[in-house]
Computed example of a mutant assay.
Amino acid sequence: MKKTISKLQNQIVSSAHPTETVTENSIPELKDVKLSSEPGKLSMKPPQFEGKTPWANYRRQFEAAARANGWNAGEKAVALTLALRGEATNILQTLTAQEQEEYDQLVKHLELRYGQAHLEHVYHSQLKNRCQKSGESLQEFEADIARLVRLAYPATPENVMERLAVQAFLDGLRDQETRQALTLAHPKHLVDALASALEFEAAKQSCKSQSKVRAIEEDGQVPADIEATIRKVMKEVLPERKNIRCWNCGKIGHVRSKFPPWEQIHPGSHGLLQQVGRSLCPAQPGSLYRR
């Protein structure tokens, strides 16, 4: 380990100042330098790891920096050790000196502590039971399906993972018509399934609007909600009729249809009521009714 650190320090100093003499005081601290295995080559410093970032995402970034710098296994172990911060440094207490110098052993312990491989059965269950929630858009549902598939099947080939994601997306759709349409379309990729679902939903909404307008034009019937709105507007706009006069009694304030029957007011006067009614009826010849 000490030899590897010393070698890296000498390479960095010589590449930065090739004509200067290297002394003990001129060697910078290793924690502040960017490791590089080739003199004069721009080095890529890996990000720090505190245990809060998902380990799988961080390892991809670290491996990308290692490939760019051309590090070997020993240099990767040194760089990963120096990249640990905060709580993540506690992992070093569980390692022997030999394990700390071996990159694979260091990654193995970090994977056990911060990785998600031991949670695969949990993600399997979540993916199996994942359905589109009420009010959840197709884009949000598709993004969560893609996340769960990669967590549940991290070592699965890409083509197999795509088929699993498409099937989970179809099984979890809320709308049955959309599910049937996508099943007949046979999408091979998750993005294709999402695009087809969005197109079908847009076409279905357009057809519903057109069919509603066509039904009103053909039947001449106004839906209940529209009819209620029209009645409300008419009631607010049109003035109420006042000074309504009853044809039976001649009083103001009610109509003849609301006037109580004569029998209720004067029981036993049915014949007289008929006679008076005929004399007052405008349709009877010789009626006494005058406007």
Rank of each mutant, 00 (worst) to 15 (best):
W247R: 04
L95T: 10
K3Y: 10
N69V: 14
L82H: 09
M234V: 01
Y58T: 03
L95R: 07
Y289M: 07
A16H: 08
R278Y: 08
P239T: 11
N243K: 01
K251A: 15
K41F: 15
K133R: 11
C281L: 09
L95I: 06
S211G: 03
L35Q: 07
Q126V: 00
A195T: 08
T21W: 09
A97W: 05
K108F: 11
I252V: 02
V237A: 11
A215P: 00
Q100K: 14
T96C: 02
V191G: 01
D192I: 04
L198G: 05
D104I: 05
Q98P: 00
A79E: 12
K128H: 11
P223C: 02
G271T: 12
K188W: 07
Y103S: 11
E199A: 08
E218S: 14
L148F: 13
P282A: 15
L173Q: 00
H124Y: 08
K133M: 06
V33P: 04
L280G: 08
E75S: 06
K232Q: 14
Q105S: 13
A152E: 06
K208N: 03
E20K: 12
S196M: 10
T81V: 07
C281R: 11
P282S: 14
T89N: 05
S269D: 02
P154C: 06
A202W: 00
K232I: 04
F200R: 05
A228Q: 03
A168V: 01
G115F: 02
I230M: 04
E120C: 00
K212W: 02
E177W: 04
K31N: 12
D192K: 08
E136A: 02
I27C: 04
L280S: 04
E87R: 10
K208L: 06
V276I: 06
L30K: 08
P47T: 15
E227G: 04
S134A: 10
I27N: 05
D225T: 00
A64T: 13
Q126F: 00
L272C: 06
Q180K: 12
Q93N: 11
A155Q: 10
P28T: 15
A283W: 09
L273V: 04
L110W: 08
C249I: 01
L198D: 02
R241I: 08
K3A: 15
R174C: 02
A224L: 02
V78H: 03
A202M: 01
G253S: 03
D144N: 11
A88D: 10
L182I: 06
Q180P: 00
R67A: 13
Y123P: 00
N72A: 08
E102H: 12
E63S: 10
K235Q: 13
G253K: 07
R290S: 10
A64M: 13
L84D: 13
L164Y: 06
Y58N: 07
K133Q: 13
A185F: 11
Q9I: 14
E201G: 01
N159D: 11
R150C: 01
Y123I: 02
Q93W: 03
A215D: 07
E50D: 12
N129G: 03
E177V: 01
